[in-house]
Design a protein around this nucleic acid. Structure first.
Lengths: 335, 335
DNA sequence: CAGCCCGATGGAAACGTTTCCACCGCTGAC
DNA sequence: GTCAGCGGTGGAAACGTTTCCATCGGGCTG
């Protein structure tokens, strides 16, 4: 079954059939109806390989995901998929290992799959700094800021991480805490983590709390790493009364570690997370956190990428709002 | 840059270049080397669209996911992606809405993307029963049993749900509970839920506990639905002392609902979940659950699908082992 | 009425592979 | 000495679209 069969069957030429099937103008109503009738009757579908070959491009958008355990990422991915499906793109997810170079991987994907655009969800600072040379397709970064990277031709969408982190610290200080540990991402390698740390420092300065870098323990955004990082933090600083974890899963891991030492949350140690995953409010105590708007991040990044693919608009960095969620995992410090 | 350019540049014909690039035999070592040199120098890649067009098939595997909130699904998907990437397939995820018909969707995907095979993760009983007629590509079901569906040409991989559920009930009864509620999936529409219910009934019979169908409350596998279902269950049966939730997220939602009524877990009500997500052991109390082996499910289903694509082996149904995880969310009933 | 534009249509040339078939030396068997 | 067989090679025809260009009426405008 090819477009030629449909043409013969319907008594029109292939050109007209192609136009009908692609919803293009300059086709009479009669032609449209007669052709569609045949198409339906034979359950015909355009061969997308031929289509893509001719059009010199995949109809796909590749998404390169690094660090997928994150529940925020699941929400973003799901929204991305439905948005792209609506616009007719094929959505291809590629998870890369924590150790791998996601930009190299993107190059490989480009050669092989010829996507029309690439989205990066998560990823590493250093890898981004190298690598975008000659990638040839529009890219958008979903958690790193292209502006900071200094690439003019890259778009990006992030939460206002610094401000959001500042709010988290504000909250803890307002509750009387001054002895605050931080469970970070790899601040050296990860833009979101770096930005969040900037916000922490900004808050500390306002309250004249010394920003002690050794109170930041690096941790991947996972349950196990959150647990391990919290243990290290407690070993080094048994006197802390509060912790800011740079992701909710880290926070959940940390809470387990705190409890496994016989301490209570929030009575002995207050915890604030980051991300605002749905699960947070099902925990006991409900997780105090800063909610990132995954849906908005997905929506804006799709718009940016589609614009870039269409050649409209230049590279842009967009910042989506966040919401502070006041749960029960942080409480006023007893006098 | 096309294969013809490489041919001209290297002094060989396109046929030979094609053979080299596809690792086929009957090429002299000299030709191979000279051609590869040119390929590397020009950073040439075969155009996969042309390749697919000619070969009449996509190199892709489509995965149709229904009910993605599930953390078990994330683990399975990630493993699937890495396994398929290793074997050179393109991995395409399609999330479908809870209300949609996933088999119809699969038909659409087939027409459009021409995948070499399709995997169904989650999905609905009724939709499966209709629909597989004429789909034309090998399919494997990751949570439903093809045997029960009665399709000879369909493969599937599941946990031994009935036995696993039986273990969960056994555990509760062993702790002294006889007044047990069940937070199910839609037992009428979902094979896993139906099988798990079968296991429950089997256990009840062994202990001469009447299997009261009204003690099963239907619920999607999500936090919010688990919460709502638990509320309904408590409204109807304030006297229950234990609950078996057919997924961990349901269980987590249920625990929240129990606590919001001022009751305690496990002192007032014991809870057993199902799935064994990593998160479970980070909760307080640690979730008692039955762990499904997502990695094994992914691995076996990939093998089944690849065999089917390769024409080897006939349709099969595989059952992977499970592990009962004894947490703290279920306790002995006080006399 | 001439000239034009416009909507509707079709023919045929691409797009970049794979693959069928043919060709060419050469070796070894008869 | 002929001929089959084989490793190495290339030409050219597909694969099923899209799209450029041409054609053809017919309704305007002037």
């Amino acid at each position: 079954m090819t477009i030629r069969d449909i043409a013969r069957e319907s008594g029109y030429g292939v050109t007209t059939v192609s136009r009908v099937l692609n919803g293009q103008p300059n086709v009479s109503r009669e032609a449209r109806e007669r052709i569609m009738e045949v198409v339906r009757r034979t359950d015909f579908h355009l061969n997308s390989n031929a289509k893509r070959l001719k059009q010199q491009a995949g109809t796909g958008i590749a998404v390169v995901v690094k660090g997928s355990k994150n529940m925020l990422f699941s929400a973003i991915l799901e929204r991305l998929q439905s948005l792209l499906a609506e616009t007719g793109y094929v959505f291809m997810i590629n998870y890369v290992d924590e150790g791998a170079d996601e930009v190299m991987e993107a190059h490989r994907i480009c050669g092989e799959l010829r996507p029309k655009g690439i989205m990066f969800l998560g990823g590493n600072h250093e890898n981004f700094k190298r690598g975008f040379e000659g990638i040839g397709v529009p890219c958008v970064l979903l958690t790193s800021s292209a502006k900071e990277l200094g690439f003019g031709n890259l778009s990006s969408v992030t939460t206002d991480d610094a401000f959001a982190a500042e709010c988290a610290i504000d909250h803890l200080v307002a509750l009387g805490h001054r002895n605050i540990g931080i469970l970070g991402g790899y601040v050296e390698n990860s833009y979101p983590a770096a930005r969040r740390y900037v916000g922490c420092v900004r808050a500390f300065e306002r309250y004249s709390i010394p920003a002690d870098r050794s109170r930041v323990v690096a941790s991947k955004f996972s349950l196990t790493d959150g647990y391990a990082a919290m243990e290290r933090l407690l070993d080094k600083f048994p006197d802390i009364t509060a912790v800011f974890a740079m992701s909710d899963v880290t926070a959940i891991g940390a809470i387990r570690a705190i409890r496994d030492r016989g301490l209570r949350v929030p009575e002995d140690i207050s915890v604030v997370g980051f991300d605002g995953i749905e699960l947070g409010s099902y925990l006991t105590p409900k997780l105090t956190t800063v909610r990132q708007d995954g849906e908005a991040i997905a929506e804006r990044s799709v718009r940016l990428l589609l614009d870039a693919i269409g050649g409209e608009g230049s590279a842009a960095h967009e910042v989506v709002p966040f919401i502070f969620f006041d749960g029960e995992s942080a409480m006023r410090l007893e006098a």
